[in-house]
């Protein structure tokens, strides 16, 4: 659905996006993470044909950026960083304007559907300026979907929202995912990216890494398994550390922390060895690194 090759954007002497190679599949939720000023919004603007690339190519929904811009604009939806509603017009009027601009066929039907979907039906005649941040954000997402785009770009959809509003927006994104739409999600909210995204790309002017959240965790930190024991014993850690598939093993209070690449395969072996060595195992669990830890580690590596 989205494919870029060496996509580059320069503003004078400043390179905002450098040689970006991306391939995003249909129906995928792709998280685009990066610090402020990394070039995420510039990338979204290029992929939605708002600005042109300096070099390289990008295909969006089968159309080439810079050559078939009108087709791209027709086939993608965008939630910009700030909702940019017409505050003194009603929610319904805001949607009607965009439905006309997107050449929607059944305008009343589509508007009715999205106002109800996002719980805005009761407030449809109220001016958008009277809406809370969360409601404005939902209205802006509805606006991005009026023409039923197969690709939706969401730039910081939950920025500045309270937890309840964030949840509403996240649920809306999950609903879009269920409908099989391709979602390009720029976010600073790493927990959100972790929950929603099939793959994430960490970006700072150039793409640093791109993979599933799980694989990124595993690549950076390995996978950590915690064996809760009835009593601690340093010798158990030494025994386990000698196993060829174990990266690291250490004892912490009554817990034995084991880092390994493939716990699904090797956990039974470790359990067997620990029991054989006289350990009383209470339970076993996996210790997950948060995506935030992964992200910070990656960004630190870039710096």
């Amino acid at each position: 659905m989205i494919k870029t090759e060496k996509l580059t954007k320069k503003f004078g002497a400043i390179t905002a996006v450098e040689s970006l190679d991306l391939e995003i599949r249909e129906g995928e939720v792709f998280g685009f993470l990066g610090p402020n000023g990394a070039g995420k919004t510039t990338t979204v603007r290029m992929l939605t044909s708002l600005i042109g690339p300096s070099s390289g190519t990008a295909m969006v929904n089968g159309f080439q950026v810079g050559k078939q811009d009108q087709n791209i604009r027709r086939s993608v939806g965008i939630l910009t960083e700030t909702p940019g509603m017409y505050d003194n017009l009603s929610a319904q009027r805001n949607l009607e304007i965009y439905a006309h601009l997107y050449e929607v066929k059944d305008i009343p039907g589509v508007i009715d559907h999205y106002l109800r979907l996002f719980g805005l039906w009761e407030r449809r005649q109220d001016e958008a300026g009277t809406f809370s941040k969360g409601m404005r954000q939902k209205l802006a997402i509805a606006r991005a979907l009026l023409h039923e785009p197969r690709i939706v770009f969401l730039d910081e959809p939950t920025a500045g929202l309270d937890p309840e509003a964030s949840r509403l927006v996240r649920d809306a994104i999950l609903e879009l995912k269920k409908q099989g739409r391709t979602i390009f999600l720029c976010t600073h909210n790493l927990d959100e990216a972790d929950r929603l995204c099939d793959r994430i790309g960490v970006f700072k002017t150039r793409l640093v890494v791109m993979d599933t959240p799980e694989r990124l965790r595993s690549q950076l930190f390995g996978r950590k398994v915690v064996f809760h024991l009835k009593s601690s014993d340093e010798r158990l850690a030494q025994t386990v550390a000698q196993l060829p598939f174990v990266r690291e093993a250490r004892s912490l209070d009554n817990r034995l922390l084991v880092t390994l690449d493939n716990p699904d395969e090797h956990n039974p072996d470790i359990v067997r060895i620990l029991v054989g060595a006289g350990a009383d195992i209470q339970f076993v669990g996996e210790l997950r690194h948060s995506l935030e830890e992964v992200y910070l580690q990656l960004v630190r590596n870039i710096d």
Binding site: T48, S49, L50, Q70, R73, R74, V76, I78, T80, E81, T82, P83, G84, M85, Y86, D87, Y98, L101, Y102, E103, A140, R143, A144
Partner: peptide, 14 residues
């Protein structure tokens, strides 16, 4: 100033 230009320009309006 109201940030409505970007979504407007993202539509297929010439």
């Amino acid at each position: 100033t109201t940030h409505s230009l970007e979504p407007l320009l993202a539509t297929p309006i010439t």
